[in-house]
């Protein structure tokens, strides 16, 4: 096999590295309000870089899938600017705040519609909810061998060899293609996409968008994420006091502090 057909799933989220002052929690409406630009989830960007590097090395095709209620061209075309060949949006009013299983259902339906592929890549987890479920459920639904937390991916003789991050270091795991891999940040940052390249891509042709109906996903098959409660993180401001004086005086002062805390 020479050419590699890669499908990569990316999620559009509000910038997870937004300044803290731009993030607030609406506990009443169970909503995290982020007043920040939309971006491609960082681990998905890592997966994109891995996919493009594989394509550069072996030739082939990179198809990017993204699902959501309202997706932004200007965010997702970055994948094309980075070197992906095709971008397909999965857009439907029903595709909002889906739980991991439902998200995987939609993606699986779309991938089945695309048909042929050698590799499916996804970020190890999304930068907003950090659940880390979708990739693995998707692999199960598609009946593919599935390797998580990839830090290095090589393809040879119809198999994929993945260095998979484990707490002690990494494991080398081999699987037959087609396979699904969730990618960790160790594969490397997505290459920089210059504004000129991005703007050129913005002027490119229309991006196909498939609805739930078109990929054959019925309303019953998907469920929204159910948030039970949402609270603002406790105030983490710290108060630091310096105890002055001789060691004896400092020790005495420290005892006073401990006593007062009891």
């Amino acid at each position: 096999m020479t050419e590699l057909n890669i499908i990569i799933c990316v999620k559009q989220i509000p910038d997870p590295e937004a300044p803290l002052s731009d993030v607030s929690i609406d506990a009443e409406n169970l909503e995290v309000v982020v007043d920040a630009p939309q971006v491609i989830s960082p681990f998905d960007e890592n997966a994109l870089e891995a996919a493009i590097q594989l394509k550069e090395e072996l030739d082939g095709k990179v198809t990017v899938l993204s699902m959501g209620k309202k997706l932004s061209d200007s965010v997702l075309r970055k994948a094309l600017a980075a070197g992906a060949d095709e971008l397909i949006l999965l857009e439907d009013n029903g595709f909002e705040k889906l739980d991991s299983h439902s998200t995987a259902t939609v993606l699986a339906a779309a991938i089945k519609k695309i048909g042929s592929f050698d590799l499916v890549l996804a970020g190890r987890q999304a930068g907003d909810w950090d659940s880390g479920q979708v990739g693995l459920i998707l692999g199960e639904m598609l009946g593919l061998p599935c390797i998580s937390l990839a830090r290095e991916i090589t393809v040879e003789d119809g198999s994929v060899i993945v260095k998979k991050t484990v707490p002690e270091g990494y494991e080398r795991v081999k699987a037959k293609l087609p396979a699904l891999i969730t990618v960790s940040n160790e594969v490397g940052e997505l290459r920089y996409i210059s504004r000129t390249r991005m703007l050129k891509m913005m002027r490119g042709g229309d991006i196909p968008a498939w609805t739930a109906e078109e990929i054959g996903v019925s309303d019953d098959a998907i469920e929204k994420m159910n948030i039970a409660s949402l609270t603002t993180p406790p105030d983490m401001t710290r108060d630091c006091q310096f105890l002055e004086g001789s060691p004896d005086q400092q020790a005495a002062a420290l005892v006073d502090v401990f006593v007062s805390l009891r």
Partner: peptide, 8 residues
Amino acid sequence: AVEKGTLV
């Protein structure tokens, strides 16, 4: 380098 992206 910026246009190419990989050397940044």
